[in-house]
Design a binder for these strands. Sequence first.
DNA 1: CGGAACGTTAGGCAAGTTGGCTAACTATTG
DNA 2: CAATAGTTAGCCAACTTGCCTAACGTTCCG
Lengths: 384, 384
Amino acid sequence: MTRLAGSSKLLRAINESATLALLLDRGTLTRGDLRELTGLSKPTTSEVMRRLTDAGLAVVVGHTSGGPGPSAEIYAANPAAGHAIAISVREAGRPHLSAVLCDLAGAEVARAEVAAAADPLPAVTGLVDDLSRRAGLAPGSTRLVQLALPGSYDPAAGVIRHIDVPGWDRPGLVADLAARLGATVAADNDVNLAAIAERHHGVAGAVESFALVWFSGGLGLAIDLGGTLLRGARGGAGEIGYVPVGLGRGADRTDLTDLVGGPAVLRLAGTHGIAAATPEAAVAAAVSSADAGPFLDALAERIAYGLAAVAAVLDPPLVVLAGDVGRAGGEALATRVTAALRATTPLDPAIAVTGVPGDPVLRGAQAAANHALRAQIIASSAPR
Amino acid sequence: MTRLAGSSKLLRAINESATLALLLDRGTLTRGDLRELTGLSKPTTSEVMRRLTDAGLAVVVGHTSGGPGPSAEIYAANPAAGHAIAISVREAGRPHLSAVLCDLAGAEVARAEVAAAADPLPAVTGLVDDLSRRAGLAPGSTRLVQLALPGSYDPAAGVIRHIDVPGWDRPGLVADLAARLGATVAADNDVNLAAIAERHHGVAGAVESFALVWFSGGLGLAIDLGGTLLRGARGGAGEIGYVPVGLGRGADRTDLTDLVGGPAVLRLAGTHGIAAATPEAAVAAAVSSADAGPFLDALAERIAYGLAAVAAVLDPPLVVLAGDVGRAGGEALATRVTAALRATTPLDPAIAVTGVPGDPVLRGAQAAANHALRAQIIASSAPR
DNA sequence: CGGAACGTTAGGCAAGTTGGCTAACTATTG
DNA sequence: CAATAGTTAGCCAACTTGCCTAACGTTCCG
């Protein structure tokens, strides 16, 4: 609980934050709208807007017309009041960075892709400077950088774990980046950010909670509980590759990675006479061919096994199949998984295919960056 | 986000709530302490305390002495400002209710146990009236009733699911109770409430999050994430009895209940030559005997299998073994489970035995009731 | 059909209310 | 006597109510 107490300054700060938050949420509002939404009086609303525009946080974007009376000014949060950069990091032979610079309104201002050098520090700072210059921003005016990582970030220890990209596992890297950039640097798992994209741009817009299963070379799970992501003790929640299958021990031991990890999917495709270079290609081939039902059925059964364990622990109303393999499987795979799950357990979450177009990880990072930037701007409008 | 805006009245409400919350949290405080904690000035602190005492929410409980200057008044939240009742419901041949009435400070005022009639409505109202009368409270002065149920409550549908106690599955029962009692009625799963007890009185006081596994006749899991419990889409989170074991289908299918449910534990004990009437008796016998290692090892291995699935999804820093069987197993079982888990998975949550004495469900319900009552009182001190 | 009157709405200004702060003062106790 | 608890008085900041002006669309009469 926020234990706040204070005097008139606090009141002013509260009212300004509330007004700015409304502008950010709803886009454009007139003074009259704000008056109704905040419950404040006309003079106060005017004063608050005067302060917000003076501070460069709000701008007049138009005038009403058509009705009786004078035209009212339409306000919006100033899109240029802050900028954030989302960076997706992945390993593709060498470190590869995709980045988007967007403004406070969430609009994309600049975009870049680089095959980076080994040392992350100059790679990221160079990318940030490049984007800022191309967007015509003063260097250092980016207030927030969101990293999407193929690993898990432990903020308590300040270290990125389980990451295969060289140089990125150095302790203190995130803090060093923040110091060098003069910006807040947030870091999160790529699958978690894909889940954020799913909530903003995909099929999970309306649900209270959902779980997103990421099938690709690796295997991952993101758990969204009412809009906040579950991260676990050391950022390790959702490592469902370790879910055990059967009671085997030692060499006999089997886990979910052995069942539906990338190599396992390729092997399964092979036993059904489907040869492909990647698991997603194998699944795509199966979906488009006429007689590949048995392969998909077998794969769905394995996926359903993993989902049964997840559903028994979390009981999510919706499970989204994502990642290259999940997307390639499409509705054909989703309906088979649903059937397999219903046949084996009494739990019945809805199963859907990801609805995010393009690069879900970068889109999710962009959404997360924008969200954090808004929170930062709202908080900064209320000093102390 | 609470989007609040307002005038001086809001300020006063904020300051009063903050002060009352501090009193509830810290027990006893002088005006000077409050001044320091809230940052308010001397006259304002006096005014706030005058209002709180006038409203009967705070009382003077003593005076400082020893230092120079006049003695300062020591304030506390008025324990009699509100009362709550915790009721644990279970099936024992016939419906059985255990109840505790406690005041705002959390102190027990009265206690009752009844083997109740079939209809829950008169049983509960009778119990509440009886406790109130014995505590010398005016009828209807109890503002909050917390129910602990061997089932899951779906607040959206207003129905208690998966409950074996006759009469308690009637739709609308909780709302009817609230109307008849003129009080807020909260309902929660008994294992969830045992987890709350574990946080307040047991071994989970300091951790950020933990999972509590309940071994008894049935099998349950409570997930505490930073003090809030995960409940799932339809209150079904933690139904780990459904976690599948191996890829069998149909009659061949095995789940965790078949492995570590009460009957399964009894059977396992039997194969190791231990005969007992209940699973907890079997485990207790094994722990106290010298040569029952093999049984405990086998049981620990099965438990570790279930925990591996839970840990892969949630990555909790701590797992507490609770319920009759978990408590009977004690440290002997916990160390074996730890070893078995380390041997099979790379995940390494700490494993501990429940540290809650007495009836953990009722204690947890009492803690939950007290917490909700405090929130209610704080909220009611800030009108609108 | 054109223009003036009317009603409606945006926004500003002035006076009044509320709540909290500072500073000075009184009272109390080791 | 020195230090501290608590009160009183006056001030300030922020919000509200009520009223005013100006702008705009509509309507109605000449």
